[in-house]
Design a protein around this nucleic acid. Sequence first.
DNA 1: CTGTTAGCGCCTTCAA
DNA 2: TTGAAGGCGCTAACAG
Lengths: 334, 334
Amino acid sequence: MRTTIKDVSIAAGVSIKTVSRVLNKEKYVKEETRKKVEEAVAALNFSPSLAARTLAGRRSFQIALLYDNHSPYYIHQIQDGVWGRCREQGVRLLAQPTDVDSATLAQDVGGLIDETHVDGVILSSPVTDAAPVLEELERRGIPFVRISPGTNHALTSSVFMDDVQAADDMTTHLINEGHRRIGFVVGHPNHMASDQRLFGYRRALDRAGVPFEPNLVRQGAFDFASGADAAETLLDLPEPPSAIFASNDDMAAGVLAVAHRRGIAVPDDLSVAGFDDTDLAQLVWPPLTTIRQPTRELAYTAASLLFAMGDGVEHRRLQHDLVVRSSTARRKGR
Amino acid sequence: MRTTIKDVSIAAGVSIKTVSRVLNKEKYVKEETRKKVEEAVAALNFSPSLAARTLAGRRSFQIALLYDNHSPYYIHQIQDGVWGRCREQGVRLLAQPTDVDSATLAQDVGGLIDETHVDGVILSSPVTDAAPVLEELERRGIPFVRISPGTNHALTSSVFMDDVQAADDMTTHLINEGHRRIGFVVGHPNHMASDQRLFGYRRALDRAGVPFEPNLVRQGAFDFASGADAAETLLDLPEPPSAIFASNDDMAAGVLAVAHRRGIAVPDDLSVAGFDDTDLAQLVWPPLTTIRQPTRELAYTAASLLFAMGDGVEHRRLQHDLVVRSSTARRKGR
DNA sequence: CTGTTAGCGCCTTCAA
DNA sequence: TTGAAGGCGCTAACAG
């Protein structure tokens, strides 16, 4: 038989309701009574049934994290960050893979909510921009927060990094290193961050008076293969770039691979820069110069926002770090 | 107001209990009645409350996955595999990070079980070998399955790959390529797989009549840094190895990094082999020759085992694949 | 094959 | 500041 609130109430010599009050940290419990109850809880090693609390109360002490991202590192950091905040809050986390292309997406999410009574939902890219999910969530009036959404920042609570500034910083860094022909690999078109990073790149070029060359910009898709493809094209140019800045680290890894295959020394003959979205940069070499994406912090903040919601729409913008890991970085001629 | 089983029963014109029967796929429901109920369920878009089912019944339709592993790729694959099986079963998955060094580990796990009423638990390394957890689980008689446990295979249900054979296969492959001095980087001492892989390495050497040299074996810890350290030592040997076989891919990546730093051409001057525990091998270059660890399949199988339990202890051993990705592999002199 | 009657363990509402 | 009664939505154990 499991230990119940009743056992605790008997052990503590109070009513069930009083134990409930202590469990829920309600006011109006005499300090002395509270103590007695807490001791009984500890002595019996009592953990209240979430199922019962959910059924009887208004909260389920559970939230869901929806994802459909194929970058394990990214998801892991997101989950880790959200988890950290949940832990502090005494809330369980339901990690829910989804398929944003599924026809039954909204229904699936609705079913999840009905089944689990989750108190809120956190959306990670690309679920952040799945209209059916957003509509379903809004229809039900269930609190949710989006991490790095691609669109509609203004409509809902969300957290994101400053992608424009990040790309600007990196480009400026490369320019300061002496580069004039800087290749750029654009991210997946579905992600607003892609546009923003491209914009940051152009803004930095403009400010420095470095002419923008459409030839040096290649479309990618945030994966290793597209980064490699882009690198091939860029390095085949009659006048190839002296640096390539990829919009994320998977693509940057692809660029490095091509450089290696061609016997191009990095960073001596080619500088490669990217984002550190996924910690991957720490595992590749030659070293990448990276913008650290504060993924874990974003996720943590998203959960904080969720728990604090009800006051209306909020946004949180987190700062990135420019991390120069290429120890042999040096000035380059054009 | 949420849709309840009662609404369905009214819509279908049957009793609540009958709806319940249909939901639980019980026998003894007339086909025609079942159909009526199913239509009502679909029409009302009804999803039963897990909290209520848990409270009233014997099952919670939830299982937990306990992990404390710092390899995102590994966890992701595990979670993915378990998830896939859960989905088929209509079971929710609670992903639960733990701290195997925590003093309150058993209590934490116990609390989780009390709170959530999970029907079973899946343990991934290194939680697989946390004695307090195993004891707690056994004491409660809750079904659990261990994925790639490090110890005590015989005591509990578990799934694992054939590490001895895998390491043997790889070593044999290297020998067949002409290598005679093969460095080996041992995995973390806490993992039984480390011993087994070392054993497989030795077995292959013995069978081929290649003398075992203790100098060529270095202790690692399954991380990038220890792989790099081991490589430094091995390559500093008066007579360095022509191939290095690392017990996992993080360490293999470390070996590659050192080779690169020293200007050693891979695979021309040095072959590097490893396991593909984490898909990392696909992101590094020069290419690694790898043993594919069937992580996702292991996890899926673990969940299957869990759902099929009650028949006693079972074990499942899954086959690995030897994946030769070094396209320029060639015979080497000693 | 189907329905009835009790709870599951906790929170809510109300009263004291 | 505390307690008593009622019910959340569902399933178990029976009865028909």
